[in-house]
Design a protein around this nucleic acid. Structure first.
Length: 474
RNA sequence: GAGGUUGUAGCUCAGCAGGUUAGAGCAUCAGAUUGUGGUUCUGAGGGUCGAGGGUUCGAGCCCCUUUAGCCUCCCCA
């Protein structure tokens, strides 16, 4: 027999881990609901054609494909068909429909777009939904990167108002305040990146500029300039870009400076307006009491930063884009959330002119950050609160009755199922970190009582079941 | 796709310059202790040293091949 193992890039979650993960998910879910978003779930697998071509060249490669059923039934016809496809397979590493026509979900946005198009007649727009489900990528796993991981998205489709952007930023603000993670929310607009390309006189080079610029905080300006040169940007263009990224100051000051530099670019002006309007809405969203003054803001741990070097990989974003990073100095972690506006997402599936904007939480990374900051609430560890020792015989039945009463009172309780040695039962309770142990033995049963032992203090007393319940609950 | 690194008991790892029968801690089980846990003490079980080949009188250690995990780059969450 071989050693048991799990596929590369997947993980088991222990009871303690599941509790902590649920804490994150529950926190986010409560906020999504509070902000008026509706839950949605889609299948783990989609038709392959739904997914291919949506995530860029690299993306197609990283889709997990599912082998078609029935390939093992070696009918002569099928064999012939398979052989015919084999050559195609060899010449092109991509799959043919004979071998695979389904694939595992790669993200939550495309399935959402597919859902919206399929159910457009039933939905009322603007449609706000949230979705928390696992996704799969055939990527090479590394630290903080898995082949199976959870995404947690909230999107609005069917509205171009920047209030949506501001609301989503508000969710970020509330969420990270609740989770007690200090964050920087970087914000930019694809339109500014387009304007930047115009400024260089090379509007068709926007993607190249974007990709290079995205690495600014990693490789510095010198590295970026080098990459820009390799990507065929002229020296004049590079100089223009340098001028823009060298702008410093508050968000307002930056936007003001950009509007000066980009005054001849319609895209640039549009982008700047987009950002300043979003930020203005966002400010107003933080108020608690109308008209009671600036002191009454929602508590927050975030800091919003206009950052023109922010790019984000996905190529369907068209307007505002955001990315969240933990700003605690001890935490070295990539982005823990991101999102943006896509003007025509559902157009891919034939429904034109529907604009959407969404955000995503990287809950695996949020988990790691909380772990590092030791910011998980203490009481999450608690499972079973009380355990009944099993003394066998009549005592066993007596114990079951007590067990039932404890549970009715809302106390998480269990009985040791076997009348094992006392010592063994106590050790079990200790290892499980159970706070109370109840001893229903002969002496106790005859008095209609039970001994309650507090496993933290070690103290023990003889009580009625009602008194026990009271004691445990206090 | 490119590179680096590791693989020895269920888990975490030792292992001398190639030299008898491969070790420790934790975990498991049993006992000191059939109604009092955490920290003790005693004992026991458990290994094709990732796999295959080669060098050698002799390989866990050296060489080749292979495989799996982890990490870095690319890209991303």
């Amino acid at each position: 027999m071989s050693k048991p193992s799990i596929p590369q890039g997947t993980r088991d979650f222990s009871p303690a881990e599941v509790r902590r993960r649920r804490y994150i998910l529950d926190t986010l879910q409560a906020l999504f609901e509070l902000y008026g978003f509706a839950p949605l779930e889609t299948p783990s697998m989609e038709n392959l054609v739904t997914l291919t071509g949506k995530y860029g060249e690299e993306g197609d490669r990283l889709i997990f494909k599912i082998l078609n059923n029935g390939l093992h039934e070696k009918k002569e016809d099928d064999k012939a068909k398979l052989n015919a496809e084999w050559d195609k397979l060899l010449s092109r590493p991509y799959s043919t429909p004979v071998v695979t026509e389904r694939a595992l979900r790669y993200d939550l946005t495309i399935p959402f777009a597919r859902y919206v198009v399929m159910h457009q007649s039933e939905l009322s727009f603007p449609f706000r939904r949230y979705q928390m489900q696992p996704v799969w990528r055939a990527d090479r796993p590394q630290k903080g990167r898995y082949r199976e991981f959870w995404q947690c998205d909230a999107d609005v489709v069917g509205s171009t108002s920047l209030i949506n952007e501001a609301e989503l930023l508000g969710i970020y603000r509330s969420a990270f305040a609740k989770l007690q993670i200090p964050v920087t929310i970087k914000i930019n607009s694809r339109k500014l990146l387009a304007a930047l390309a115009e400024l260089c006189g090379m509007p068709d080079k926007m993607m190249d500029i974007t990709v290079a610029l995205d690495k600014l905080d990693k490789i510095g300006w010198v590295g970026v300039a080098k990459e820009l040169q390799e990507r065929g940007i002229t020296d004049e263009g590079i100089w223009q870009i340098e001028k823009v990224i060298n702008v410093t100051g508050t968000n307002d000051e930056k936007l003001l400076a950009y509007s000066d530099i980009m005054q001849n670019s319609p895209a640039g002006i549009a982008g700047i307006n987009e950002l300043s309007k979003t930020l203005a809405y966002y400010r107003e969203l933080g108020f608690r009491n109308w008209g009671s003054g600036a002191e009454n803001w929602e508590p927050r741990t975030d800091n919003i930063l206009v950052d023109i070097s922010l790019a984000r990989g996905l190529n369907y974003y068209t307007g505002v884009i955001v990315e969240v990073v933990c700003s605690h100095p001890d935490v070295k972690m990539g982005s823990i959330g991101g999102g943006g506006r896509y003007d025509d997402l559902t157009g891919l599936f034939g429904l034109k002119g529907l604009s959407g904007v969404g955000i995503s939480f990287g809950i695996d990374r949020i988990y790691d950050v909380l772990e590092e900051l030791k910011a998980f609430p203490e009481q999450l560890a608690e499972g079973t609160v009380a355990m009944l020792v099993n003394f066998g015989g009549e005592n066993e039945i007596y114990a079951l009755h007590i067990l039932s009463q404890l549970r009715t009172a809302g106390i998480a309780a269990e009985i040791y199922p076997d009348p094992a040695k006392f010592d063994k039962q106590m050790k079990y309770a200790n290892k499980r970190a159970i706070s109370y142990v109840l001893l229903p033995g002969d002496e106790e049963r005859l008095q209609g009582k039970v001994s309650l032992k507090n496993f933290i203090s070690g103290q023990q007393q003889l009580l009625s079941v009602e008194e026990c319940i009271k004691m445990i609950k206090s």
